[in-house]
Design a protein around this nucleic acid. Structure first.
Length: 726
DNA sequence: ATTAGTCAGCTGTAT
DNA sequence: ACAGCTGACTAATGG
């Protein structure tokens, strides 16, 4: 994050008339596939511009049908990827080679019992020779570097010291969960949710896909992004499965842990070798919502413990050194200063009888002590409070620190505790500091450089959206009217009339009598905490004629802004959109507001070539937010809806294009008596740290004038195609 | 050099 | 309040 978020005591009031005519970046043109096809969006009588169809049809003539939700993999036609780049690589049905691996002698019998993940060796397979380095006699697989010099260069080097690196097959013997009851909830309906056997198949598909794409690479940015995205997709899918099961006492619902272990056992992970210094592909400022995520990307291996360390050889003697710590509020740390962290050692409390005692200089504490003297880099992950999550905590990777001093002191409870003073290395991009700044902005105590408007929505949204320019002196984008809603010039008649639900307490998963869920293939497509499970062709939400309350889970996109956004001036791409709040993968961000342009209007008046702010759902783009191999996987296809936000619109009109986007769009149908509106909702592809620009893929078009709409892409990502279509 | 068993960890969610 | 999963450690067994 190269922006500076300084204070500006001067900027306060603002004259709206100074929002000038600035040539916006986007010059979009409404696009329809081809002229002859336009008519296909209308019924023969020309009454409805498009038809809202249930997953199984019917479809208007000439329109490509949505892929049915229930289609099995063998039934599904070839994915149309629009000729674009394959992000995920081909998903094959072939059994991965290592599935045929002979189990080690003496373990075979046992391993076989756990059908699911018993044989989960890692994809990197044979090269993963594991030796344990234990104690002084631990024979480690050599290390030439001593790695202790004060030299900065050493920091990013990977210590080739062998640590106890589980290879995924080692720990199968532990008794796993008991045999699970099969769900069969609801009325025995065919529910669009996989069984446990399906889950196992799904993991194998993910494994294949992961190995195909990243099998050779160990830890680059693309790999880390893919891994975290797929992990959370899978986790959301599992939580959807859990949702359908009756609560079994003695069986807790921890989809995060289950997804994590399945991934680890299948080798769906990266940077599994411990190292001192930065981790390839993980960037300072990256955020995580589960400890398992830290483990999967190689940032911090233990699933619970706060101190990660490894044995490092130094002049023949091996000693433990700390590689990373997690400060998450469980101890009496001092973590207010963005550059200094006073960290407490671990231990001192018996977990079972909660008996308190002095901390001992062992394990993590010992490693931190050694690292104090060796002055090696230690990665710091800070837990920050986040009221929006149930856990109330988010982990932020704050980069490399060094331990300046260590001491012991008496804690409030009277027992002695180790304390370590960690100081952040200079020259690293801001991470935790940004969180502290935002905290202050929210408190309103300080003003900020470059704030043009504190709320450009003028109260139209529940949350203010500030307009900020801290790069030049432009005073704002071209004038427009802020509206939070989507306007249809003509109501749309449903071909299949349907009534709303009567779920007075809100629609709940497993209710086979809810007509709204039925439209979604029998399942609720949103998790309990308001995340979309995955991208699909169309999500049916509850609407005006439903009797469920506004808080119903199936009305996720209807509550207006829940995330604190701001419109800001980018360095070279005009105005853009970013968020003060961290955004979880799958979280709803906003919808695309504006005016629906009917195809007939376009026929009559021709294409408005000057409309710079248009959303075009007919375009093709890569599927994002879709789990490889998921039975509910629905590739993104064109959708006959074009929205103009030139004269009126909301924050979504400011979202720029990226070839490696962090946001995807999703058509949503809202039932309304005998009418139905299609809305376009935006969801996060992956976790998005605060103040990161939000972008989506504008998609590709074909046709005679496609070349004219090609614009040079400035997204700057490694996957950049070099152009995009305005 | 492996394997199985035990333990506690600045988890996280249900009650 | 407590299930859950892992890495670290320990003891026992096999070459």
């Amino acid at each position: 994050m190269e922006h500076s978020f300084g204070e500006d005591p001067g900027s306060g009031s603002f004259d709206k008339s100074r929002v000038l005519n600035v040539k916006p970046l986007r010059s979009l043109v409404p696009v329809f596939p081809t002229a002859p096809n336009v008519s296909s969006f209308s019924t023969p009588q020309g009454a409805a511009p498009f038809v809202c169809a249930s997953p199984s049809g019917p479809f208007p003539n000439g329109t490509s049908p949505f892929f049915p939700f229930f289609m099995s993999d063998s039934q599904r036609p070839e994915q149309n990827t629009g000729g674009g780049v394959h992000n995920f690589g081909p998903i094959s049905n072939a059994v991965p080679i290592n599935s045929f691996r002979t189990p080690p002698p003496g373990r075979a019998g046992r391993a076989q019992q756990h059908s699911g993940f018993a044989n989960g060796d890692t994809g990197s397979g044979s090269s993963r020779r594991v030796t344990r380095s234990r104690g002084p006699q631990g024979q480690s697989s050599a290390q030439t570097e001593d790695g202790y010099s004060e030299n900065q260069n050493q920091s990013s080097e990977c210590y080739d010291i062998d640590t106890t690196e589980t290879d995924g097959k080692g720990k199968v013997g532990r008794p796993k969960r008991k045999a699970q009851k099969r769900t069969s909830s609801g009325g025995g309906k065919d529910i669009n949710v996989p069984s446990d056997a399906d889950v196992d198949k799904l993991v194998e598909k993910i494994q294949t896909s992961f190995n195909d794409t990243f099998g050779q690479t160990e830890g680059d940015r693309a790999c880390v992004e893919y891994l975290t995205m797929v992990y959370d997709l899978f986790r959301r899918r599992l939580s959807q499965v859990e949702d359908l099961k009756e609560a079994v006492p003695g069986l807790s619902r921890r989809p995060d842990l289950r997804a994590g272990t399945l991934f680890l056992n299948k080798g769906i992970r990266t940077n599994s070798k411990k190292r001192i210094g930065s981790v390839p592909g993980v960037e300072i400022g990256d955020i995580f919502f589960f400890r398992m995520e830290l483990c999967l990307v190689g940032l911090h291996a233990p699933s619970m413990a706060g101190i990660d360390y490894m044995g490092v050889k130094h002049t023949g003697e091996e000693e433990p050194l700390a590689v990373s710590i997690v400060s998450s509020g469980g101890y009496e740390d001092y973590a207010e200063d963005p550059d200094v962290l006073i960290y407490s050692g671990q231990g001192g409390v018996n977990r079972r009888d909660k008996e308190l005692k002095d901390q001992k200089l062992e394990r993590g504490n010992l490693a931190l002590e050694k690292s104090t003297h060796r002055a090696n880099d230690v990665r710091v992950i800070r837990g920050v409070k986040d009221p929006s999550t149930v856990a109330g905590k988010i982990y932020v990777y704050d980069g490399l620190y060094r331990i300046n001093e260590s001491w012991t002191e008496k804690a409030k409870n009277g027992y002695s505790v180790f304390k370590y003073k960690l100081v952040r290395m200079a020259g690293q991009p801001d991470a935790f500091r940004i969180w502290k700044s935002i905290e202050q902005w929210k408190g309103g105590a300080t003003s900020r450089v470059g704030v043009i408007l504190p709320d450009l929505t003028s109260g139209e949204e529940k949350l203010p959206v500030s307009l900020v320019n801290d790069v030049d002196d432009e005073k704002g984008p071209a004038h427009f009217t802020y509206t939070s809603s989507l306007k249809y010039s003509n109501p749309i008649n449903l071909t299949v009339p349907s009534s709303g639900c009567v779920c007075l307490g809100g629609c709940l998963p497993g209710n086979s009598n809810c007509p709204c869920l039925e439209k979604n293939g029998g399942s609720l497509l949103y998790t309990a905490n308001g995340l979309v499970v995955s991208q699909s062709s169309l999500v049916h939400e509850c609407g005006a004629s439903c009797q469920c309350p506004p808080s119903c889970r199936n009305r996720l996109s209807q509550g207006g802004l829940k995330i604190h956004l701001e419109v800001f001036k980018t360095k070279d791409r005009g105005w853009g959109l970013r968020s003060w709040d961290p955004i979880r993968a799958g979280a709803f961000i906003c919808e695309y507001a504006g005016e629906v342009i009917s195809p007939s209007k376009i026929d009559k008046f021709g294409v408005d070539t000057d409309d710079d702010y248009t959303f075009d759902a007919t375009r093709m783009s890569q599927p994002l937010g879709v789990l490889p191999g998921d039975s509910s996987e629905a590739p993104k296809i064109s959708f006959p809806l074009v929205i103009s936000a030139k004269y009126s619109g909301n924050v979504a009109r400011f979202m720029n294009h990226s070839c490696s986007p962090n946001v995807f769009w999703q058509p949503i149908s809202r039932e309304n008596k005998n009418e139905s509106d299609i809305h376009i909702a935006f969801f996060a592809v992956r976790h998005i740290p605060p103040m990161t620009e939000l972008t989506y893929d504008y998609g590709t078009i074909s046709g005679d004038d496609a070349d004219q709409r090609k614009k040079k892409c400035l997204c700057g990502t490694s996957k950049c195609k070099g152009y995009f279509y305005q």
